[in-house]
C-alpha cells in the first residue's frame, strides 16, 4: 500500500533535483505586462518584461557609449564614485573577479556608472580604471547626466542612490551588482560587498550565456 507512495515521492525529489541542476533558469525582474497579439491570424498571449531604457553617456576614453553599444550583450552594472571611502573599494575588489573571469569574452561587459559626475570626468575615470588594473573595453566607466543616472539607477536597475552630506564621501548608495541579459532585462541582483554572492554572479553569467537567444522574446 505504502510502497507506491514512497516511490512516487522519490521520483518527485529526483525530478526536482535534476531540474535544479541542469535546467536552471534565472528569474526575470521588474514589472511585466501581458499582451495579446495576432500572429498568423491567431490570437497569442505573450508577456513583455521591463527592460533597461536607452541611454547615452561618456566612457573613460571620452567616447560616447550607451545602450546601443550594449545591445545583444550580457552586462553587469554597478553604481559608484571614485572618491568613495566606504563600500566602493570592496565592490570594485569583488568586481575585479568578474572582470578577470570574462574580460576576454566579447559578449559580456561590466558597466560602472558614477553617481558623482561632477567630479568623475572621463580623465578621472580613466586614471581610476588604470590604477585598478582595467584596460580595454570590457569594463566601462560611464559619466552621465546626474538626474538621468539617478533615475535609471532607481527605476530600472532598482538600486537606491542619493546625495547626502552626512554620509561618508557625500553620497549614500547600495552596493548591488545588477545582471542584465541580452534582451536588456534584469536577471539578478547581487550584494557586491559579499564575495560569495559575487561568485554566484560569475556562475549565473554562464547560465545566462547558455540561454537560447530567443528565450522569452
Amino acid at each position: 500500500m505504502k510502497k507506491p507512495a514512497y516511490l512516487f515521492l522519490g521520483f518527485i525529489c529526483l525530478c526536482a533535483c535534476k531540474f535544479n541542476s541542469s535546467n536552471k533558469t534565472l528569474p526575470i525582474y521588474g514589472n511585466r505586462t501581458a499582451v495579446t497579439k495576432m500572429v498568423n491570424g491567431q490570437v497569442v498571449n505573450d508577456t513583455t518584461y521591463a527592460t533597461i531604457p536607452p541611454f547615452k553617456f561618456v566612457d573613460q576614453y571620452g567616447d560616447s557609449t550607451g545602450s546601443q553599444n550594449l545591445a545583444g550583450k550580457i552586462y553587469v552594472a554597478d553604481f559608484f564614485f571614485t572618491s568613495c571611502p566606504s563600500i566602493c573599494p570592496i565592490m570594485q575588489r569583488n568586481m575585479l573577479a568578474v572582470y578577470k573571469a570574462y574580460k576576454d569574452t566579447p559578449d559580456v561587459k561590466i558597466v560602472s556608472f558614477t553617481i558623482d559626475p561632477k567630479y568623475d570626468t572621463p580623465p578621472v575615470l580613466k586614471n581610476y580604471a588604470e590604477k585598478l588594473g582595467v584596460t580595454g573595453n570590457s569594463w566601462l566607466f560611464l559619466q552621465g547626466n546626474r538626474d538621468t543616472v539617478y533615475r535609471i539607477a532607481e527605476k530600472n536597475f532598482l538600486v537606491a542612490v542619493s546625495k547626502d552630506s552626512t554620509a561618508a564621501g557625500g553620497y549614500v548608495h547600495q552596493g548591488w551588482f545588477v545582471l542584465v541579459d541580452k534582451q536588456k532585462r534584469v536577471r539578478g541582483s547581487y550584494d557586491g560587498t559579499d564575495p560569495k554572492q559575487v561568485a554566484q554572479l560569475i556562475d549565473d553569467i554562464k547560465t545566462l550565456k547558455a540561454e537560447p537567444a530567443a528565450a522569452g522574446k
Binding site: 571611502p85 566606504s86 563600500i87 573599494p89 570592496i90 570594485q92 575588489r93 575585479l96 581610476y128 588604470e130 590604477k131 585598478l132 588594473g133
Partner: peptide, 15 residues
C-alpha cells in the same frame, strides 16, 4: 579593511 583588504593587500594601484 574595506580599503586595505583582509590581508593588507591594498587594491592594485589605488590603495
Amino acid at each position: 579593511q574595506n580599503c586595505h583588504g583582509q590581508h593588507g593587500e591594498g587594491l592594485n594601484g589605488l590603495i
